[in-house]
Write a protein that binds this DNA or RNA. Structure first.
Lengths: 334, 334
DNA sequence: ATGAAAGCGCTAACAT
DNA sequence: ATGTTAGCGCTTTCAT
């Protein structure tokens, strides 16, 4: 900055003024300074600026895994909203490790980011509350127990489950399997509750008509896991005519497993996913699933975060609605 | 920091020493200071530290689209490598807009990040060279014309094309269609060159045995685009017996389009993708494709970037090899 | 072993 | 309209 000032024959503060309040600088002085900047190859120090100003344009997000399509789209929503006002996103993955979440939280707080958007690995949010209390806004995404002291966006997973239940009931299914891994997060439990409530509302006994299939997922052998799941479904008595999967990836694996064991889908078994990843529309049969408003989740989270800077901000809890997408993988039972 | 010093009954510099050189502080003083930090709820200012130190733990990446699985995995590789030394990633998307790339580059440089990893939108890299010259290391990913003045990682796309060609030839295909959008990047041109060289090596005339199918992609109607592509393939004379697609997503769409028009794949048409996204293994038929070393690309880029800080660093150009993955979507022509 | 002091690059109140 | 000046929170000599 000093160099620029020298080259332009003005003081450093005039250079500063050209940067932050160009209107108060005389037009030709401004031009001289701008030329000098270019000549010198001057790059303003965002770091020094922030030390002075307190304000940062960078927001952090801490989510499970940036390479998971669901979170990738979520992040994309955040990024798009931030970009509208020149903001940037630091996207970090935890791999569901609580220690990593804590570490990332700490680093981001020290970076003095504008705020942090977190899809928490655990329901315990004390650490998040502390960060928020110290002055770095925190927004929760898809967390089970929204706190009055934090903004939050969630998806109504119970509705998601209910929509699936109602759809299958309307097709005539009365025995349904619900395929999950072991030790599922709250969102899955809610979905299950929604599914059961739909069955109950139709006069069925959820304990008899909903079969819980908890399968330990072997990551090196997803296909093997899927085949076992399908076999287990077919062996059950009474045999389920529909299989509701914990997410689209699982559903795709299950459909493949079905074709491996010679099962016709949907004729012999209807399959339902969750998330609505893009390619599921292009499978054969195309997947019936529940669309999560992934991008909207990110947009809303960013909105809430940006609003924290406003005078008189009040924490809000927003709930978004998922949407049933009926395609070819479900049909009436044989 | 002053508060902590007061609470611990020491000077600010002792607090600073506890932070950056704990060993030179007397054990019990250190304990007193650490207690005070906790009591006060002290969070060191990463910003001030960087203004003093020059060093940042944050790396930026500028890629096409974080929600594209290919780039998501690339970023994941970068993030994983950085995490090993406490580094963080700011992941940004350009949507192939050059102005956005320029803007992001500028913001990241001002943030004084440790370095920037870029998958450039265009072959013109002057701006990148300038940033690098001014002191922010830049690493190129998958850029066509590696510069001697920048580190770079690329995938040997020509090899990728050749592998596909050799595979199809070995199955007995002699008329092959190559499906791309219009105005393809250099990487696709190289793949095409590899494909042609394989045909030539087998004694075929590439101009006759390779049919270029450039289809304008309508993003709102990917399926329509796919159907038109398949129809165009089938109408060509001589009729191609294999369709090589620009990427896995296109290949999946094409397979779906095939099933819509009653085409049996691979019996009547072999289909090949590119990238090896996870779910392609679970399609029916599973997709024959070329695996790009997505995560390795990220790991290597991060390695190169971190190495820039080393005394005596020399810019390097690393080329990674793709790998043919043969699955069910290709077979001998009827 | 600890503290005093200077300064990283910038901004904004105040003075000219 | 422009310049002077006093920090923002930290690190790092250099004294003590």
């Amino acid at each position: 900055m000093q160099d620029v000032a020298l080259a332009a024959g003005v003081s450093a503060s005039t250079v500063a003024n050209v940067l932050s309040r160009p209107d108060i600088v005389a037009a030709d002085t401004r031009r001289r300074v701008e030329d000098a900047m270019r000549a010198v190859g001057y790059v303003p120090s965002g770091v020094a600026r922030r030390l002075r100003n307190r304000s940062s344009r960078v927001v952090g997000s801490i989510i499970l895994d940036v390479s998971n399509p669901f979170y990738a789209e979520l992040n994309r929503g955040i990024e798009d909203r931030l970009a509208e006002t020149g903001g940037l996103l630091i996207a970090c993955s935890t791999d569901v490790r609580e220690d990593r979440e804590r570490q990332l939280l700490q680093v981001l707080e020290q970076q003095a980011v504008r705020g942090i958007i977190v899809a928490p690995t655990s329901p315990r949010i004390e650490a998040l509350l502390e960060v928020s209390r110290r002055g770095t806004p925190v927004v929760l995404v898809d967390h089970p127990r929204p706190s009055r002291d934090l903004c939050a966006v969630t998806v109504d997973h119970e509705l998601g489950g209910r929509l699936v239940g109602e759809h299958l009931l309307s097709l005539g299914h009365t025995v349904i399997a619900f395929l999950t891994g072991v030790g599922q997060p709250d969102s899955v439990l809610r979905r299950r509750a929604g599914l059961r409530s739909a069955l109950a509302a139709a006069g069925l006994d959820p304990d008899r008509s909903l079969l819980d299939l908890q399968v330990p997922v072997v990551y090196r052998d997803v296909m093997g896991t899927a085949v076992r799941s399908v076999e287990q479904t077919l062996r059950a008595d009474p045999r389920p005519t529909a299989l509701v999967c914990v997410n689209d990836t699982a559903a795709v694996a299950v459909m493949k497993a079905g074709s491996l064991v010679g099962l016709r889908i949907p004729a012999e078994l209807s399959v339902v996913g969750y998330d609505d990843l893009q390619f599921t529309a292009w499978l054969t049969p195309a997947l019936t699933t529940v669309r999560q408003p992934k991008r909207e989740l990110g947009l809303t989270a960013a909105d809430l975060l940006l609003d924290e800077a406003r005078q008189g901000h009040r924490h809000r809890q927003v709930r978004l609605e998922p949407e049933l997408v009926v395609r070819g993988s479900t049909t009436a039972p044989a």
